[in-house]
Design a protein around this nucleic acid. Structure first.
Lengths: 158, 158
DNA sequence: CAAACTGGTTTGATAATCAAACCTCTACTC
DNA sequence: GAGTAGAGGTTTGATTATCAAACCAGTTTG
């Protein structure tokens, strides 16, 4: 695990893991690159085609994703002559993020859904559930516990 | 609902709702702005403080989020003298996306989690479940059904 | 009426982005 | 072994976005 981690206090605004996450994968091409690897496209040219990203941007992003511990480079399993990009545990763990985006996009962002995710051959209808209590998660049941008391829920406590 | 929707085919790369979603909320500040509104910060200056975004960028982003149908402007409920930014249904529906990012960030992106989400006063332990079959969603149980046959799973068909 | 706060817009310097061309290395063809 | 065709980037030069800071107009507040 090489993953370079970020101290949220060094970022502008409210200290928040989502902001730190976006610092790593919040670039225009990063999540699409991870999506391609998730789909089984491990080679540079495949990822370039799949994302549509300019090659220099893609090269830079793949490099930073490797540094962040999201991807790693190793020989393709098919005895390939070139190294391929593969997901680390952290990278695989981005699956839920990408699926959440895709679900939202299908519902709100596109004219017509270009892809449907099947779960055991039926359309996936995802909801978030809390494993601790087994209950479906609703926004109203959530509260935030902030480490830094300077940042309360609403605005900054002066 | 004003939401300007995107035809995925007009974007570079593989037609994908996640890519379309990122076209709307994939900017550096967009999701953080939505997070602030989700936290109850409806005023421009509050969102500026909470996100740490430059004011001109924030103004531009809020405008595009309103155009996309993620936010809307209306008088603050507290009889405020200024209009506030409020979530539409589409905006509220970004909650799962932001929480997925936050969960990933807590686990992989930060040195120490600056915030913990409580669900009914216990720490939230989120998993995705398919409502159709009630089963917990694992990556291995998922397949993609693509509308455009030119884009298969791996790379582009020719 | 002055001071301060609101929600921005403008400005001017800096940095990121892009498409296209280029380069190196490996492999295959003839 | 010369020629061609990838793969995986890097370089280049023009364009665009980003940023911090200053500015401005319309409310309140004192």
């Amino acid at each position: 695990m090489t993953g370079t981690r970020i101290d949220p206090a060094t970022l502008p605004g409210r200290p928040c893991s989502a902001a730190s996450a976006l610092e790593i994968v919040g670039d225009r091409w990063a999540l699409l690159a991870v999506r391609e690897v998730l789909l089984g496209n491990h080679r540079f040219s495949q990822i370039a085609r799949g994302t549509g990203a300019p090659r220099d941007r893609l090269a830079a992003r793949l490099k930073s994703l490797v540094e962040a511990g999201v991807l790693e480079r190793r020989p393709s399993e098919e005895g390939g002559r070139y190294d391929g990009y593969h997901l680390t545990d952290a990278g695989r763990d981005l699956g839920p993020v990408i699926r959440a985006l895709l679900t939202w996009g299908n519902r709100w962002a596109v004219t017509a859904p270009p892809v449907r995710i099947l779960h055991h051959d039926h359309p996936l209808e995802p909801v978030t559930v809390c494993t601790t209590c087994g209950e479906r998660v609703r926004a109203d049941d959530l509260t935030r516990e902030v480490t830094d008391p300077a940042w309360a829920e609403e605005g900054r406590a002066r």
